[in-house]
Computed example of a mutant assay.
Amino acid sequence: MSVRASIIGGGPAGLMAAEVLAQAGAQVTVFDAKPSMGRKFLMAGKSGLNLTTDAPLERLLPRFYEAADRLEPMIADFDSKAIQAWAKRLQQPVFTGSSGRVFPEAMKASPLLRAWFARLDALGVRRVTRARWQGWDDAGALVFDPPQEAQFMQPDVTILALGGASWARLGSDGAWANMLKDRDVPVIPFGASNVGVSVDWSTHMQRHFGAPIKAVKWTVNGTHSRGEAVVSAHGLEGGGLYPLARHIDASTSLFVDLIPDMDAAQIAERLSKKRGKASLSNHLRKALRLSSVKIAMLQEWSRPVPQNAVALAALIKNLPVAHAGLRPMDQAISTHGGIAWNALDNGLMLKSMPGVFCAGEMVDWDAPTGGYLLTGCFATGRWAGQAAAQRLGLL
């Protein structure tokens, strides 16, 4: 007799769980509220799909912050090497960039997703779109809008892979949180992660919108992140800032070091050279090779700009960023918060709801960009799928 598994959420965690369960012999149906699956996955691949970072476990784990210990067995079971091998089995060759980040050679998500769907189809996985999950009825059956066939509403196992609470238009709206709270499942409030900061720019910054800020270091409360950002109409965005988002609110002091490879004394020495009739901007450009956007930031946040070389050097090394907190959560790449770890057993099954497993960003873990988010989703999806298959007696 076949056993049935219903997976709610057609992102990378849900699809990975589906693959594992189908390979084990379960009859698998994946439900998604949107007209197509993997929408956030496709969005992530628009500028090059960063699948993972090619690094040993001891370097991967710290990037998952407080959840590293809980995630360790899952990521060890499906680490960056395993992810690369999995992509290659889908006939999607990968390459590793100079920073260690791993990308498909196609540099897009769509070819990999098509190949993945083809594999799932071959395994007999049924995919149902435009089916929004509404929770459970009084008899414990899954409820969807519109209603689905009764045989799939009371599966032998259910895996929830509904994402966090960002990019609602792509499917991750966090609406599931109240459904689980109603069943006394502890859920940690969501917060924005991997998101930019809001800045109320003066008009003189408008010509710099879209400009990259390269070779800088950002600091919040003693925590540093080195990496570039981009000036946008609403503030600052970019991989250099994203790891600090979890430490920032409207009252947090944020600083940027515009020349992290030189100390203040070296900068002051260069600035002390006679500039003649050159304007301060030209002097900064010639003496320090500061880009126009960095000079504009210096002028934006230090009125008037110090003329004294030592004071100006100190400011260049520790320029206060006048910000108004993070951009809205729905603009974040990801969110922290979600199902509390103490609500789950070691197989990611809800302790209060036997047979219901959770995976992906809906669990309370966080990671920076750089392939770590997808690594966590793949690993937890696979782990939940294996645990569900074990519960069904298939492994």
Rank of each mutant, 00 (worst) to 15 (best):
S2D: 12
I8D: 06
I8W: 04
G11V: 05
P12K: 09
V30L: 06
F31T: 02
A33F: 07
L42M: 12
A44E: 01
S47E: 09
L49F: 04
T53I: 11
D54E: 13
A55E: 14
R59M: 12
L60K: 02
L61M: 09
P62M: 01
M74K: 13
D77A: 15
D77P: 00
S80E: 08
Q84S: 09
A85P: 05
A87H: 10
A106G: 01
S110W: 09
P111G: 05
L113E: 02
L113D: 00
A118M: 15
G124H: 09
T129G: 07
A131K: 06
R132V: 06
W136A: 11
D137R: 03
G140R: 05
A141S: 15
P147L: 09
Q148V: 08
P155M: 08
I159N: 00
A161Y: 00
A161V: 01
L162H: 02
G164I: 02
A165C: 11
S166W: 04
G171N: 04
D173S: 14
A175E: 09
R183E: 05
V185R: 02
I188F: 01
A192S: 13
N194L: 02
V197P: 06
D200P: 00
W201L: 11
S202E: 13
H204G: 13
H204Y: 13
R207V: 13
R207L: 14
F209H: 12
K214P: 03
A215L: 10
K217S: 13
N221R: 14
Y242T: 02
I248Y: 07
S251Q: 12
S251C: 07
T252K: 04
L254E: 06
F255N: 02
P260R: 11
P260I: 10
A264R: 08
S272V: 07
G276F: 07
S279E: 04
L280V: 12
S281R: 15
V293W: 11
I295P: 15
I295R: 11
L298G: 11
W301F: 14
V305W: 05
A311W: 09
A313Y: 01
I316K: 07
I316F: 07
N318L: 12
H323I: 12
G337P: 01
W341G: 03
G347W: 03
G355W: 01
V356K: 05
V356D: 05
A359R: 01
E361L: 04
V363H: 03
D364W: 00
A367V: 15
Y372D: 04
L373N: 09
T375Q: 14
T375A: 03
A379F: 04
G393W: 10
G393Y: 08
L394S: 14
L395M: 15
L395Y: 14
